[in-house]
Design a protein around this nucleic acid. Structure first.
Length: 477
RNA sequence: GUGGCUAUGGUGUAGUGGUAACACAGAGGUUUGUGGUACCUUUAUCACGGGUUCGAUCCCCGUUAGCCACCCCA
């Protein structure tokens, strides 16, 4: 945390800086209009914080950033162990890529996309999701000529201009995997397994909901039936659902309205309208899930919001959390038509994506609960060594010693800017260091260094030459 | 995008029509080679703009942001 107080006498005075956690309002415009009353210069600068993050976007730091990175490393490990290779696609793409793949008429495209004119007048968009870009990359680089399936994982920011609320931001991150070039139910099961275990590794128990929405033809046939049914019950439906009936009838199925739900329960189910191959495929996916001992819930009303999905669809809802609290942690499905639709060869594919911010929120909730019960969080008790130095010569020497320690694989915390040993020990204490290395004038002369056990207070003098071995030993106990 | 609720220091909270209290955190210090306790100092024109009023942090309106529900979705 930055110091906001510079009262030290021998330090040149500089304007005080206030640190506020509340995002400052974009006050610049108003200030001008409102012709501020004469104030002292200092106070003006204090309040003058014209820059804040944009709505729905946030700085990531501290504990949250730590959890974010932990989630990233977990993703990296699990993706690698399942044989996925990393892909990074541009954050900005042609607007039409998303419009085509996600589909006109979906909210994501119609009202949530960040789309603007590039300098040459072409329409570009900030990506609202990852699959379209990965599919595009597959086509662009002729990935159908390399051994199939192509398994790719990604992690990065996505943008949707939605109204922010819990678990929903305008810039958020997704971790996702796509398996392209293979039409086999094992693939679907594997993807579910990867995402399920990713969440499990992070300590999150989820319910896996699965359904199949069949091929395009299956769905068209089913839609005729569904629309017919819903029309017959039209008077019982909510206003919202009446609208959806015209725009995207499938979506009526996941309405939360009580009356709608009653109607939906009686509605024809898509599973009954699947063609033989689709049905067989879906049954097989379920068998694999059984084999993998992944618990799932068949959810006939599960349809996903993006147009490109075919056959298997699934999503993850946190166990024991009201769904409405923030929706699903992630989801995915098969998208057999997408790659061909984007100009590539007919290529079956499937994938999933998980909302990182929602995962972090869930972890945080769990940690808060644990703390309430008085449990010490694991990463808090990691052994740490602090390096304290005393006197100009010691300070100079410490740079070298710290570097030697770093090269041998141990990181020591330090604050070379402090000169009093007291202040440094305070810091060591605060960060929970188990040991402190103390290097003073005398030690520099003797070529030694003191190790101090922060709990017992026992100090030992050791040879600087052996510092790496000594520190490693301290850390291992 | 629609509706509702909220807005006090870094954090969590008090409080009142007459400019703010407490806890924790931060910084500095209690005469400079030793931390965890104690003590001292210090950190807020009560989100922003306007209105009512002799006077507003407290009442009213607007803005912004956050939260909740809907929509949608990660």
């Amino acid at each position: 945390m930055p110091s906001k107080n510079t009262k030290k006498k021998n330090v040149a005075p500089r304007p005080k800086q206030k640190v506020t956690s509340k995002p400052a309002r974009p006050a610049a415009v108003k200030k001008v209009v409102a012709a501020p009353k004469p104030k002292t210069e200092e106070k003006e600068t204090q309040k003058n914080m014209p820059y804040a993050t944009l709505r729905g976007m946030k700085d990531l730091f501290g504990r949250e950033a730590y959890t974010f990175q932990r989630a990233y490393h977990t993703a990296e490990n699990i993706a690698a162990s399942y044989g996925f290779s990393y892909i990074e696609t541009p954050i900005v793409e042609q607007a039409s890529l998303f419009i085509r793949s996600i589909g006109k008429g979906t909210d994501v495209v119609d009202k949530e996309m960040y789309t603007f004119d590039d300098k040459d007048g072409s329409k570009v968009s900030l990506r609202p999701e990852g699959t379209a870009s990965v599919a595009r990359a597959y086509v662009n680089h002729g990935m159908h000529t390399i051994p199939q399936p192509v398994k790719a994982w990604y992690w990065g920011p996505m943008f949707r201009h939605d109204r922010p609320q819990a678990g929903r931001f305008r810039m958020f991150h997704q971790f996702g995997c796509e398996t392209m070039g293979e039409h086999s139910p094992v693939i679907d099961a594997e993807l579910i397994s990867v995402s399920y275990n990713f969440l499990k590794d992070l300590g999150i128990d989820v319910q896996v909901r699965v359904n199949s929405i069949g091929t395009k033809e299956d769905r068209d046939n089913y839609l005729v039936e569904l629309v017919g049914y819903l029309r017959s019950k039209r008077s019982y439906l909510s206003e919202e659902s009446k609208k959806r009936l015209l725009k995207n009838p499938l979506r009526v199925l996941d309405s939360k309205d009580e009356h709608d739900r009653a109607v939906i329960e009686e509605a024809p189910q898509i599973v009954d309208w699947l063609s033989e191959p689709s049905k067989k495929f879906f049954m097989s996916v379920l068998e694999y899930l059984d084999e993998a001992e992944i618990p799932y819930v068949l959810t006939p009303t599960l349809v996903r919001g993006l147009d490109y999905y075919t056959d298997t669809v699934f999503e993850f809802v946190e166990e024991g959390v009201e769904e409405s609290q923030q929706g699903a942690l992630g989801g995915g499905g098969r998208f057999n038509g997408l790659i061909e639709y984007l100009g590539g060869p007919a290529t079956p594919a499937a994938g999933f994506s998980i909302g990182v911010e929602r995962v972090i929120a869930s972890i945080k909730r769990k940690e808060d609960e644990a703390r309430k019960e008085g449990k010490v969080l694991e990463e808090m008790k990691q052994p740490t060594v602090f390096f304290a130095q005393l006197g100009e010569q010691a300070r100079k020497r410490s740079l070298l010693l710290i570097e030697r320690l770093r090269r041998s694989g141990v990181q020591v915390a330090h604050n070379l800017a402090k000169s009093s040993i007291k202040a440094q020990l305070e810091i060591a204490n605060k960060i929970g260091a188990t040991h402190t290395l103390i290097l003073g004038q005398k030690e520099v002369q003797d070529g030694t260094i003191i190790t101090r056990n922060m709990e017992s207070g026992i100090q030992e003098i050791v040879d600087q030459k052996k510092i790496e071995a000594v520190v490693r030993k301290l850390l291992s106990t």
